[in-house]
Structure formats: structure tokens, C-alpha cells
């Protein structure tokens, strides 16, 4: 009995030591996703939190939405000379793990306050004008631009403004996923928005928190 207890105690201590050792060694590489996304940070920033105007923030993206985009990029339905090759690299590395990795990252809103549209008035003017123009967007993207993952509708709040403005144009021109029925209503809305309003809408959504 005493021997058993002693052995039990020793095993318990060893297990504790092993745990402590494990705890010390735990680092970013213990998440297998970390090594798979290292290419992405060159453009999309640390953990997908882009700090630039044109590169979208992908931290905290809904995994189903993320996977749909990778599929659309890889097949050319969402044409992008940058993302088509990288989407194929992501598929090689494992899209599920990469989607899960970015979904788990805390989203940090863009620090960019203005778009690079030279015709833009002051940022505050643009944001105010964008808010007025956003009425049709609210129907799907929500009052605060949070989106609806269940319907593959992405959040717009705090997204990089240059990226938002460019996507609005692509939707209006119907060059992004042309045959996608899920996007038909969105494109109808964008066709009614004059190009001159894209920068204001982008400034407004970039400013939302």
C-alpha cells in the first residue's frame, strides 16, 4: 500500500513536471497553423491584421466565408493576380487549418482614417456622407457593419478603406464572382451607387468599431 502510494506520488510529480515543461516550451509553433500562414503576413500583417489601405484585414474572418473566397480566387471566379496563386498555395497547405487560424485571431480595426481618393473632402465629411449613403448596405451588413456569418456576409466595420472601395467597384462592374446568385442582390445595390460615393462609404465603414 505504502509502496503503491509512493509510486503514485512519484508518477504524479513526474506528470506535473512534464506539464510544466510543456508549458515552458509552448510557443507560436505549437499551433500548427502558425507555420502555414507565414507567407500571408507580408501583405496581410501580423496575424491577418493588415495596417495598410489596400490589403484587407483577414483576422477574425468567418471560416466559411474565408474558404469560399479561397475557392473563388483559386478557380478565378474572383479574379486577382495576387490571390489566385496564393489561394492555390493555401489549398496545398490545407485551407481548413488556415481558415481556423485566422478565425481565431482577434480582429483589430484599421488605423487608416482616409481613403487615397484625392477628390475626397475632409475625413469627417467623408464619414458623414458615407453614413448617409450606407442605408442600403445596412439591410445585409447590419447597423454597425458587423455582417452575418450565417449568410456568408462579411463584417465591414474597421476594414481597410482602400480595399472596401476597390471591392465596391468590382461588384458594380460584376467582375467579382459574376455568376454567384448569393451576390446578385448586392450587385444590384452597388449598381445604384455612383462611383463617387465609394470613397465616402469606405471611409465610413473603416471608421466603425
Amino acid at each position: 500500500m505504502n509502496v503503491r502510494l509512493g509510486v503514485g506520488l512519484v508518477l504524479g510529480i513526474l506528470a506535473l513536471l512534464a506539464l510544466t515543461e510543456e508549458g515552458r516550451a509552448a510557443g507560436p509553433l505549437d499551433n500548427p497553423g502558425f507555420a502555414k500562414v507565414i507567407t500571408c503576413s507580408a501583405c496581410h500583417g501580423e496575424n491577418g491584421n493588415s495596417r495598410t489601405n489596400m490589403m484587407p484585414i483577414i483576422a477574425g474572418l468567418d471560416p466559411a466565408y474565408f474558404k469560399k473566397q479561397i475557392e473563388s480566387y483559386a478557380t478565378g471566379k474572383r479574379p486577382s493576380p495576387e490571390m489566385e496563386p496564393y489561394a492555390k498555395e493555401i489549398q496545398f497547405l490545407g485551407v481548413d487549418q488556415i481558415a481556423a487560424y485566422f478565425a481565431a485571431q482577434k480582429r483589430e480595426p484599421t488605423p487608416i482614417r482616409v481613403t487615397i481618393n484625392p477628390a475626397l473632402p475632409s475625413t469627417a465629411d467623408a464619414i458623414a456622407k458615407g453614413k448617409v449613403a450606407s442605408a442600403p448596405c445596412v439591410i445585409c451588413h447590419g447597423e454597425k457593419g458587423a455582417g452575418d456569418p450565417a449568410r456568408l456576409i462579411p463584417g465591414l466595420a474597421g476594414q481597410a478603406p482602400g480595399y472596401l472601395a476597390q471591392q465596391m467597384l468590382l461588384f458594380k462592374q460584376d467582375t467579382r464572382e459574376p455568376d454567384d446568385q448569393l451576390l446578385a442582390a448586392k450587385k444590384a445595390v452597388m449598381r445604384a451607387v455612383p462611383d463617387s460615393q465609394f470613397a465616402d462609404l469606405a471611409a465610413y465603414y473603416a471608421s466603425l468599431r
Partner: peptide, 28 residues
């Protein structure tokens, strides 16, 4: 190599992305 892709043409939009790439990768 899996694939090489070129932009279809020269454009302002590509230049805007170049500008963002510069800042992002220097930060990386």
C-alpha cells in the same frame, strides 16, 4: 512552383496595392 500570374495590364489600382505591400512587408 504552383503558378505564376501577371496583372492583365498596368493600372493605378496595382500601384495602390504596391504602396500597401511596401508598408506591410517592411513591417513584417
Amino acid at each position: 512552383q504552383i503558378e505564376q500570374k501577371l496583372t492583365p495590364a498596368q493600372s493605378v489600382s496595382v500601384a495602390q496595392r504596391a504602396e500597401s505591400w511596401r508598408l506591410s512587408i517592411w513591417s513584417d
